[in-house]
């Protein structure tokens, strides 16, 4: 059933990582994503991986969970690896027709594969330890300076909040409408592609209509509760930077510095 899908894979907890200010966590994740591209040699990459493993350990989430999150990107990793494997010039190890495998190819493929894994694991660590609402909140606050250049930051954040609130409701509704149409003999399980697409019409139209109805009712409810945009609005939950957050930022700065230093100390791999 559709309702079995979980949205915004968040695993509640009380670890050090869970408690870091979401703004800091969001910023750190972005910085880390950039940082992964700094290393030019195995030592640097090793340090980036070690930092990630350290963070993962701090999250106290089961390793199985983190590894499972990497599964969907495996095809991508395999593909880029193959491309790198065959197209990088260097010392030839094996040769057949137009295909050549070089030492350098293997090294590059491995290097890039690890880099992608770091990116994915880093971002999943963020979503695993931060609830979607907190994340939206952090995004609104981090981006708030952009209001100066007329970016509707509050509106974007409000839309995300509402989307998160209504995704489960709409999934449930889709389930219900599908059942109702199946009960009237709609056939959604057989036929070719075109037939299947057409079979979705009796589901999609009611879904659209009910979404509009919900949107209208929600707008009324929000107005009744004095909503009038972001102006003059306060927030119940205030975010305060604590010592732990500064420590986290400091560690990240040290990591970046170390990565640059390592680049100068060891020979370049890619």
């Amino acid at each position: 059933m559709l309702s079995d899908i979980t949205i915004g894979q968040f695993f509640p907890g009380n670890s050090v990582l869970h408690r870091i200010d979401p703004r800091v966590k969001l910023a750190l994740t972005f910085i880390y994503i950039v940082a992964v591209f700094i290393p030019r040699n195995w030592w640097g990459l090793g340090l980036a991986v070690a930092a990630l493993i350290g963070a993962a350990l701090l999250s106290r989430l089961p390793a199985r969970l983190l590894l499972k999150g990497l599964k969907p990107v495996l095809p991508l990793i395999v593909l880029t690896s193959i491309i790198n494997l065959f197209y990088v010039d260097g010392t030839v190890l094996w040769h057949w027709w137009i295909f050549r495998i070089t030492w350098e190819g293997i090294a590059t493929a491995a290097f890039i594969a690890i880099r992608i894994l770091c990116l994915i694991a880093g971002t999943s660590l963020l979503t695993y330890t931060t609830s979607p609402t907190t994340l939206t909140d952090a995004l609104e606050r981090l981006l708030s300076p952009l209001r100066v250049i007329r970016v509707p930051v509050h509106e974007i954040a409000m839309m995300m909040t509402i989307a998160l609130r209504f995704i489960p409701t709409l999934i449930e509704e889709t389930d219900k409408i599908m059942s109702a149409q199946k009960a009237r003999g709609a056939d959604m399980e057989s036929g070719g592609l075109m037939q299947r697409v057409r079979a979705l019409i009796p589901v999609l139209i009611p879904l659209f209509i009910s979404s509009f109805r919900r949107a209208y009712e929600l707008a009324t409810a929000m107005e009744c509760r004095c909503y009038h945009g972001g102006e003059g609005r306060t927030r119940m939950k205030q975010l305060h930077m604590r010592s732990g957050d500064y420590v986290a930022l400091l560690l990240m700065a040290l990591l970046i510095a170390a990565l640059f230093v390592l680049n100068t100390q060891f020979p370049k791999v890619i």
Binding site: S131, P132, T133, T161, I162, L164, R165, T169, R213, R214, E217, L218, A221, M222, R225, C226, Y227, H228, G232, R233, T234, R235, M236, K237, Q238
Partner: peptide
């Protein structure tokens, strides 16, 4: 009841009105 709750979390939804009114956190 489904179409008048704005936030995913109960207490955040309850806070919505006073937040709009600009009440102290």
């Amino acid at each position: 009841p489904d179409n008048q709750l704005v936030s995913t979390i109960v207490e955040e939804d309850v806070a919505f009105g006073p937040e709009n009114l600009g009440v102290e956190p």
